[in-house]
Simulated scan of single mutants.
Amino acid sequence: MDIAPMTKRDKILLYAVLMLAFIVLYVRFLLIPGIGSLQQARADLTEAQDAQITMQETILQAGVNAADKNTAWGELQTANARYYSILTSDELDTLVTGLELNHSMQPVSLSIGQPLTQSMTGYIAGTQAGQSPAPAGSAAAAVTADQVDTTAAGNALLQQFLAADLVPSYDQPGYLQTSDVTFSCSGEASNFLSLLDDLADNYPSIQLQNFSITTRSFAAADGTSSSGSIYNVTLRVVLCDKGGVQP
């Protein structure tokens, strides 16, 4: 069978079909993948630019962060200076006796308990649950009337410092040691009130647990009988391992 020669119309139609096929193949296998690659490249570029900006901001912030760290460390050292490291019995004796003598009180007796290690979390919860109990008796109540606010303020200050700054390092993190000190002294009631005020305002690492007042009789220099007050006080001294606090 003879093949008829292609007419001009057939040639135009064949050319159109070939061009259409070329366009379809170009769009399908070249243009669409190219657009996808371009979009991915733009996304990668945006991500890289964001990462670069973040890194530059971090580098610029490094100096500020270092300054903030030094400032925080200085504040910690300032707060830390108001607390006692692990003290011996003799050092606790000197601390408490010195406090009495500074307020013209005469030491009568002193008892120092063994240091106890306890959890800081439980310790803070316990101090928040209740403050030092008030002693019984109308005379004692009169003495403690202006001590409630100052003692509570001192305890609140202690809790703030302990919770925020002082996390000592013992066998496990978050532990501290305390030692109970019980002493008796004699002297004027005004001097004893001054001692309690000083304790609440300037000794955040010493907590007043309780105190009571008793009366005793003694012979005066002229041979007559006289009486005076004995103040029985229990303190809790917080002992921190300052070496465990690092910048």
Score class of each variant (00 low, 15 high):
Val64Lys: 15
Tyr26Asp: 07
Arg42Ala: 12
Ser212Cys: 06
Gly126Gln: 06
Ala200Asn: 03
Ala139Lys: 13
Arg236Lys: 14
Tyr175Gly: 00
Pro107Thr: 01
Lys8Cys: 06
Tyr83Phe: 12
Leu87Val: 02
Ser225Thr: 11
Asp90His: 06
Lys69Tyr: 07
Leu76Arg: 11
Ile59His: 10
Phe192Asp: 04
Gly63Val: 01
Gln128Tyr: 10
Leu60Asn: 09
Val108Trp: 06
Ala145Asn: 08
Ala145Glu: 12
Gln114Phe: 08
Asn65His: 09
Leu76Val: 10
Gln209Lys: 14
Thr144Tyr: 11
Gln160Arg: 08
Leu20Cys: 07
Asp68Ile: 14
Tyr231Met: 01
Leu101Val: 07
Thr144His: 09
Ala62Gln: 11
Thr121Phe: 05
Thr54Asp: 15
Gly113Ser: 11
Leu176Lys: 01
Gly74Lys: 13
Leu87Ala: 01
Thr224Arg: 11
Asn65Tyr: 09
Ala164Phe: 11
Asp180Pro: 03
Gly154Leu: 01
Val108Tyr: 08
Asn80Ser: 15
Tyr83Pro: 03
Val108Cys: 05
Thr58Val: 08
Gln114Trp: 10
Ser109Phe: 04
Ser184Leu: 05
Met105Val: 02
Ile230Asp: 05
Gln177Ala: 05
Met6Asn: 12
Met105Asn: 00
Asp165Ser: 14
Thr58Met: 13
Leu76Ser: 10
Asp68Phe: 14
Pro168Tyr: 02
Val233Asp: 00
Pro204Lys: 02
Thr94Ile: 15
Asn155Leu: 10
Arg42Leu: 11
Ile3Val: 13
Gln177Glu: 05
Lys8Val: 12
Gln61Phe: 13
Val233Pro: 00
Phe29Pro: 02
Asp50Arg: 11
Asp93Glu: 14
Asp146Ala: 11
Ala66Tyr: 13
Asp149Trp: 06
Ala221Asp: 12
Glu47His: 09
Pro107Gln: 04
Met120Val: 09
Val96Lys: 00
Val96Tyr: 01
Ile124Phe: 01
Tyr231Lys: 04
Leu76Lys: 07
Gln61Gly: 08
Val96Pro: 00
Leu99His: 02
Val237Ser: 02
Thr7Trp: 01
Ser169Glu: 12
Ile35Pro: 03
Cys185Trp: 02
Pro204Trp: 01
Cys240Leu: 15
Ala21Thr: 13
Thr54Tyr: 11
Gly122Trp: 03
Ala16Ile: 13
Leu199Arg: 00
Asn102Ala: 04
Val237Leu: 01
Tyr231Val: 02
Phe183Thr: 11
Asp241Trp: 09
Asp171Ile: 10
Asp68His: 13
Thr78Glu: 12
Asp68Thr: 12
Glu57Asn: 12
Arg82Tyr: 12
Leu13Ser: 10
